[in-house]
Write a protein that binds this DNA or RNA. Structure first.
Lengths: 199, 199
DNA sequence: GACAATAACTGCATCGAGTGCAGAATTGCA
DNA sequence: TGCAATTCTGCACTCGATGCAGTTATTGTC
């Protein structure tokens, strides 16, 4: 890795940290890109060569989770049924919420309920990730599972979990407590499974 | 209904029509709010007293669908199981796609794949609607279905359908043909049901 | 170590979405 | 007709985002 690359990684990190700091202190809408850039000691214009938009900073690590889920699918046992593989893959994503130690992850949960732009972007990312997972799931079961079926299966699982989670987080209201959020994710997964397995 | 109200309705309609026309001709991003306002013969500033944002114009009638779904839930038979009621409610929303005769609905499908802002907003609306339906579903089965369970159930159904639909629409690519889209919705529902009923 | 090529950074000008404000125009009602 | 309540509108402004052009830093080569 060249100096250039290392520097770029460092700057990227600086932007995320500066943004985290400011978002925590002032909130999302009240923080301007110019302020983030200034805090990260770069020009405002440079910010946009690292992130295409302000929301993007909040989802800097999201790609890694999808990659992890896809890897989990690839690691399927020879005769493991699709639903089981999918469950393992989604648990992987959920566990990554142990990354909830990350302050940005906490902010994400908080802004999910208050900032439309963040909510919309999150929904879009989830949707895309779901589509990607479905693609790989279908590929892992050639001849056995069409891509459309894989899409339905993935959608059902993810939908059930997020549907339950939405209700739980509503009740949790106004709290950012990482432990509580994690517990909610676990509970949502359990309930989703129960509901899914006996219609 | 006073003259004032009637005029307001008429203006709202004029905005939607003007926007539809321009979106069809020039695309979403290429159409500015100022142009829409001019075509609807109002000031740019006035546009924002009818719609809070540019995307909102595309979802002008969306509320009606959610209301219809909720009504379907209220009409449940005395001993109808939750899953059946939910299915009826969601079919109601799907049928409303016969509203696909509406040019704006066609645009929605088209921009869903091409314009991030529209995609995000659509996801958010779906999410909120889902939450609302879950709330009513739980209320329709007091003591029998907790709100969290209702959330999981609704999420699973909606997720399965949209998951399957996403794949189907991808294949349909670049086509706006209303009939094809409707057929895709039906197929998605069928597959979702099949997947859902035998895990 | 000097040098050219390449990539990254930056300020500037610009556009479009969205908001607050204050005054003009319109409608409702007596 | 006259007055109050709404609605419409232009204006000024903020902020996110993009294109452009000039400057600076990094890299590989001689």
């Amino acid at each position: 890795m060249s100096l250039r690359d290392r520097k770029r990684v460092r700057t990227r990190q600086a932007i995320v940290e500066a943004a985290t700091e400011l978002f925590e202190k002032r909130g999302y809408d009240e923080t301007t890109v110019a302020e983030i850039a200034a805090a990260a000691e770069i020009g405002t214009r440079t910010f946009f060569s690292y992130f295409t938009s302000k929301e993007e900073v909040m989802f800097a690590e999201s790609d890694a989770r999808v990659v992890a889920a896809i890897k989990a699918i690839a690691d399927r046992a020879p005769d493991e049924p699709p639903a089981s593989v999918l469950l393992r893959a989604l648990r992987t994503v959920g566990e990554d919420s142990d990354d909830m130690g990350s302050r940005m992850a906490a902010l994400r949960v908080r802004f999910l309920r208050t900032v439309p732009a963040v909510r919309g972007r999150a929904a879009q990312i989830q949707f895309d990730a779901q589509r990607e997972i479905a693609r790989h799931l279908a590929a892992a079961y050639p001849g056995e599972l069409t891509e459309v079926q894989a899409g339905a299966l993935t959608g059902a699982f993810v939908g059930a979990v997020t549907g339950a989670l939405a209700v739980l987080l509503d009740d949790l209201s106004e709290q950012d407590d990482p432990a509580a959020v994690q517990a909610a994710v676990r509970e949502a997964t359990d309930i989703a499974l129960a509901v899914y397995l006996k219609p």
